[in-house]
């Protein structure tokens, strides 16, 4: 049981490392524009969801708390998308 869980936590960690390096590479590559912004936000969201569900262990918490934390992430991301969209006009 513990071993399985550990494997999952380890996989989550590796995935997050990869996502971070991808974000960094996009930045160093000087990539900009709508597609890049959406991709980076998607990567950030992925990491956020993993932290919330796996590290904070909300996957096994009452639904309300999952909604609260994931909702925070969703609202913040949506606001950022909206503002970047306004900025491109």
């Amino acid at each position: 049981m513990t071993k399985l869980l550990n494997k999952r936590a380890d996989r989550v960690w590796l995935l997050m490392l990869a996502a971070t390096l991808a974000t960094w590479a996009l930045g160093e590559g000087g990539v900009a524009g709508t597609a890049a912004v959406l991709l980076m936000l998607a990567l950030a969201c992925l990491k956020g969801v993993l932290v919330i569900l796996d590290f904070m262990e909300l996957r096994h918490a009452p639904l309300l708390w999952r909604i609260l934390l994931l909702g925070w992430l969703a609202i913040v991301t949506a606001l950022i998308v909206l503002c970047y969209w306004i900025g491109t006009r």
Partner: peptide, 26 residues
């Protein structure tokens, strides 16, 4: 232990949004 851990993950979570937003996205 779980209580302290939850706080630390929150610090992580905030940075995960902060980093692309302030450093990378344009």
């Amino acid at each position: 232990l779980e209580t302290g851990a939850a706080y630390w993950h929150m610090v992580d979570l905030a940075w995960i949004v902060l980093f692309p937003l302030v450093y990378v996205m344009r």
